[in-house]
């Protein structure tokens, strides 16, 4: 039960982290320049964006939870299970970012999730 709850926190934090980082970057706007002074200005806007910071904090929380759960659970169980992040983040992209996701993209995402789970096996 404890492991399942921690696993849920890891997957949810990772997915929310991706979604809010994407939301923050969209709010900052498309990066079109390679000039250092403009990139520095964009960097300041990015690190002061609330959605981006929320995403980053969420990712850090997920990583810390991952480290904590490894103190009692097997990596060979935890690591493949976190591949659910791909499907959950895509669901978040649809519900929170209102992205248009067709069946082919869903199918590809599920294949990627399964593949990552297999690659993560010991």
């Amino acid at each position: 039960m404890k492991t399942a709850m921690m696993l849920a926190i890891i997957i949810l934090s990772g997915a929310l982290g991706d979604v809010y980082i994407a939301k923050g970057m969209k709010q900052v706007g498309e990066i079109r320049t390679l000039r250092l002074c403009e990139l520095a200005w964009l960097g300041r806007r990015i690190v002061s964006n609330v959605a981006f910071l929320l995403g980053l904090l969420s990712m850090i929380a997920g990583f810390l939870a991952f480290l904590v759960v490894l103190s009692w659970a097997d990596l060979s169980f935890i690591s493949p299970a976190t591949s659910l992040n791909f499907v959950l983040a895509t669901l978040g992209a649809k519900l929170i970012l209102k992205e248009n996701i067709n069946r082919l993209r869903w199918f590809g995402t599920v294949l990627v999730g399964l593949g990552v789970a297999l690659v993560s096996l010991p």
């Binding site: 996701i101 067709n102 082919l104 993209r105 199918f107 590809g108 995402t109 599920v110 294949l111 990627v112 999730g113 399964l114 593949g115 990552v116 789970a117 297999l118 690659v119 993560s120 096996l121």
Partner: peptide, 18 residues
Amino acid sequence: RWAGSLLICLGVFCVSRS
């Protein structure tokens, strides 16, 4: 791991087609 890599390749192909 090889099988997983193949599945990822197929999945990325589907996502890029979409």
